[in-house]
Structure formats: C-alpha cells, structure tokens
Nucleic acid binder design. Structure first.
Length: 254
DNA sequence: ATGGTAGAACATCTA
C-alpha cells in the first residue's frame, strides 16, 4: 500500500500536476493540503475520472485539505474535536483498514506572532484528539504539512534557523508530544541522513540552492512498524514548471 | 533591517 502527502499551494493552479503525478505513481492514498478552494469548486469529477474517490474540507483563499483514495473513505471527520476553528486544516477518514488523519498544521509566521500561539494551541488539540483516536484505531497514519522540521538533520542551515518559526523548541516539543503517543516519523524510521527536504522557499532561488526543510511528514502508529517498507521524498514535481513550494512525500506499507 | 516569490478577496494577507 502506497501513501503520499503533498501541499499543493492551490489545487486550482496545480490540478494538472496532481493528475499527472497520480497517473505516474498510482498511490492508494494522497493527502493534499492548501487546496485553497471552497468545497463547491473541488474538482471531484476530474479525480473520479482518474480512479480516485475524494473527500475534502476547504475554504476560499486559504488552507483546505483533501484525501484522494482508490477505495471510498469512510467515517469522515472534518472538524478537529475540542477546538473552535474556522480554518479548514483537518480531515480524518477510514481508508483500506487504516485510520488516516490529514493535517495542515498552522504555519505560525514567527515565534512572537499571535499565529504562533494559535499554532501551539492547535497542536495541543491535535494531541488530545490523537490520544483518543489511538485508543480506537491501532492502525493509524497521521500525515500532512506539519510546518515543523523535526530536528537539525531536516534543516539546510540549522544555525540560521535556530529558534525560528518551523524549528523552535516549543514546536519541536509539540511534535514530540504527538510521537510520544505511540507514533513514529516513518521517513526517520527508515533513513538517517540529513539534507532530505520537502519544502523550499520560492524566494531567492531556494530550490536551485537546495535551501530546504523537511516539514511534510507521514507518522505511523507502532502497530504499523513491521509493515514499513519504503519512505521517500519525490523532488521531481518541484522541478516542474510553476511548481508548488512543497514536493510529495511517500510511504509504502506491506 | 528589509526583502526576496507565489497565490488568493487583486489589496494586502499568508506562507
């Protein structure tokens, strides 16, 4: 079983790229973030024609998440329990015997911003939700744009990024809090090396100079550990014309 | 210290 996550930074702009990538990779599941469109405008028919069921939770201009799967998602949840939040960042569903949670974690802007406090509050609600979810579902996958680089191996210049947004100690502690529930970063379960990034800033030639961060993650529950086969980051879509600033990350389960 | 680019409500916000 092949799972993937991709922050597309506007599905309207990136639809043809997503369809092309699905055709090439044929994942069983693709989680999208930053679709930036209302549900009434979601291109469900195009994905159906490509052989994918879609569930989605979107809004105009910002945020928006979706799950595309070859089998129909069931038990769909569109609201993060315990948090009043108009921002569409959360989607959970049963897919192929897995409980799947797609997250577009709050960016936070900077550590002295109100948005940073919102990020930490949001992550606390995610932790509380996942704690109850893990009690119900042994086979759980949490994937998406976490907007947190787990450790310095995931940062092109750790000194420049030290204590900055996406790398600060409280953010990393919040991510560790999720892992402590009984989840693991599947990429790190299979790879030790630094320099494997999933996001590069559009500005100042970030991709050309490989000034990236690994902030797109696929977490898997302990019960899935023996099924982990391969984890990868596909940099190719970041080389395409008019790319998203993120590239897809993948996990293969036996 | 600022701004650099991209996408969206096309004016500023968010990232």
């Amino acid at each position: 079983m092949k799972l993937a996550s991709w922050n597309v930074n506007s599905l309207t702009v990136r639809l043809s790229q997503v369809l092309r990538w699905l055709e090439n990779e044929r994942p069983d599941l693709l989680a999208l973030q930053e679709t930036k469109l209302e549900d009434a405008r979601f291109p469900a028919a195009e994905f159906a024609a490509a052989g994918y069921h879609a569930v989605y939770s979107g809004q105009k201009t910002y945020n928006g998440v979706a799950l595309l799967a070859r089998t129909p998602p069931q038990q769909v949840l569109r609201e993060l329990p315990g948090l009043e939040d108009p921002q569409r960042r959360f989607l959970a569903a049963d897919i192929d015997g897995l409980r799947v949670v797609n997250l577009y974690v709050v960016n936070g802007q900077s550590v002295d911003s109100d948005k940073y406090a919102y990020k930490l509050r949001w992550l606390a609600a995610v932790r509380a939700f996942l704690e109850t979810e893990l009690a119900r579902h042994l086979q759980l996958v949490v994937l998406g744009d976490f907007n947190i680089a787990p450790d310095d191996r995931d940062v092109h210049d750790p000194e420049v990024w030290r204590d900055q947004i996406l790398c600060s100690a409280p953010e990393r502690a919040a991510l560790q809090g999720l892992l402590d529930l009984g989840l693991e970063d599947s990429f790190r379960a299979l790879h030790d090396e630094s320099g494997q990034y999933s996001w590069w800033d559009y500005r100042q030639g970030g991709f050309r100079r490989d000034l990236g961060l690994r902030i797109d993650l696929i977490l898997s529950s302990r019960a899935l550990h023996a099924r982990l086969r391969a984890a990868a980051i596909d940099r190719i879509p970041r080389t395409w014309e008019r790319p998203s600033d993120h590239t897809p990350v993948l996990l293969e389960l036996a």
